[in-house]
Design a protein around this nucleic acid. Structure first.
Lengths: 135, 135
DNA sequence: CCTTGACTTAAAGTTAACTCTAAGGAGTAA
DNA sequence: TTACTCCTTAGAGTTAACTTTAAGTCAAGG
């Protein structure tokens, strides 16, 4: 199986060596060591980092991922807990998306209002305009 | 027209007095002062903070909002620039949402996989499972 | 043999956006 | 009058997630 030095691995997964050592210090990914005590990463690690980045991308914090990693290390007995943790993260993430979409709606209305102003087709002000959208 | 002290205003809009003074230092909202040099806020300020919080909620940074405020202060001549700034923020925000949704898809698949494990109905491992989703 | 570049560690620095402290003043309630 | 709450300022502290520095080791190429 392929082995990657930290530098190779970093460019493979799109992180810096700094970040990888930081993640290791935090316990998120622990590579093996060679005879010279240098880290090496495997294809398994590529998959794990990929999944980890998806977790980060849903807004899961380092602390939460740390917790997830600890559960994972304890084996299949913690699957229900892991499922629950991910479900919580999922709900929070969905809520965040909904909130962002609501904020985007207001921003879009403002852009539309500017378009109106620029086209000289709207004379009302933004607040009045927004009332038509019940906001 | 109603006038609000910083404390009243803070609870009205759901921010702390600390944050309001910080926003003022950054030029995001400049309240008037009374005879004792104390800040007071108006209903106009409530509307502005509300919009500002929507902007923040789309991921617009303090610096960008600062820039927006400066354009606003220069009058109607900057409407095209403001429209462009908001359009940029909107696109970025939409991209963020799409990315978050993609990450959520992976997370959801993992949850489904845990469900399978917990129900003893799935024996394949996660990587194999994910291949069915081309990921 | 010597330079180069990648690696090692612990620890300090960075950034954004707050959040709080210190030291003090002014107005109101008992 | 004394206590209380709110206000003022400048500046220091916090948090998460990196990001960099300092000081040094190690192996390969010229």
């Amino acid at each position: 199986m392929q082995k990657y030095s930290i530098g190779e691995f970093a460019s493979l997964v799109g992180l810096t060596t700094y970040t990888l050592r930081y993640y290791e210090k935090e316990g998120l990914i622990i590579p093996s060591r060679d005879g010279n005590d240098r880290r090496y990463y495997t294809d398994q690690d590529i998959k794990w980092i990929g999944f980890l980045l998806h977790l980060k991308g849903t807004g899961m914090s380092m602390e939460e991922i740390k917790h997830y990693v600890q559960l994972r290390a304890q084996g299949d007995g913690t699957i229900a807990q892991r499922r629950k943790l991910l479900a919580t993260v999922k709900e929070r993430s969905l809520a965040q998306i909904r909130e962002m979409q609501a904020n985007l709606t207001v921003l879009s209305h403002k852009i539309d209002w500017y378009d109106g102003k620029l086209n000289h087709t709207v004379s009302e002000d933004f607040e009045h305009y927004l009332q038509r959208f019940n906001n």
